[in-house]
Amino acid sequence: MTLPSAGETAAQADPPEEIKAIPVRHPGRWLAAVVVLVLFAMLVHTLVTNPRFEWNVVWSYFLSRRVLDGLAITILLTVVCMVIGIVLGVILAVMRLSANPLLSGSSWVYIWFFRGTPVLVQLLVWFNLAFLYPKISLGVPFGPSWLTANANNLITPIAAAILGLGLNEGAYMSEIVRAGILSVEHGQGEAAQALGMARGLTMRRIILPQAMRVIIPPTGNETISMLKTSSLASVITVTELLYAVQLIYSVNFKTIPLLIVASIWYLIVTSVLTVGQYYVERYYARGAARELPLTPRQRVWRYLTTFHAPPPGPVLPPSAGSGR
């Protein structure tokens, strides 16, 4: 075969011969697949054949009123505590990065304290706050008070759970937010300042939106973690999902089936949260990549439509001729 002459273009030449090679064998993969399959079969077998799973009990309680009420409280706790945690986290992170030593110092102490004590202990302390402060009043410090309430009435179990989980979450979120803020390139803040934007405006419009890309994935983690940590509220008699099923099985002794009910619900909500996180991440990725990744739906759509027409690729027009 002769080399094509310089003038000959690729289109005119015969298409090159496709490589046809014998692929490398992967016996290890086959072995691993067999092992995984056998283990999976064993799992399915035991799930189906072991009568003590009592699947009929699982399904009979799965949509029961008490379980769904517990689920609602779990979701409520997760949402409220995460909102508190995120708001508090942003405030603490901004304080921590402040030039004012009083602000950064108090933020440091807060984080030190709430990360340094177990959240279960914090929940119990809030729950038992009435021992420490039987009456809680609102008024001038060291001066007269306008409103006084009985701590036992004010700090209900659910309020104690929200306080304990939310304030604790704030400490963790602040570190996540701080990492996000620090990840934004220094020049961004400078460019905003040079345009006359004040620090607060710069943080809100320029720094935080970019920090979100770093903040979102661990926050998704924290939310999923919060969903499950909220089960700790069962020890202070909040009838969230876990305590709801505990109350049921303490009467009928169907312990395992009811724990399975709770687990399945936790899995379902976690899956929903994971999908939600994907879309939030995608939203904040705009501008980060040259093209946004397709959503799963768009991917299916494109697959279906591009059978007929080639996908319109992004065409970057060449930059205007240099005028040096």
């Binding site: 390139e185 020049g187 961004q188 460019a191 905003a192 040079a194 345009l195 006359g196 501008g287 980060a288």
Partner: peptide
């Protein structure tokens, strides 16, 4: 706000 500045690294807001 009355002084414009252009940086070596452009520093456009990517988002």
């Amino acid at each position: 706000a009355e002084i414009g500045m252009v940086f070596q690294q452009f520093n456009l807001f990517p988002h």
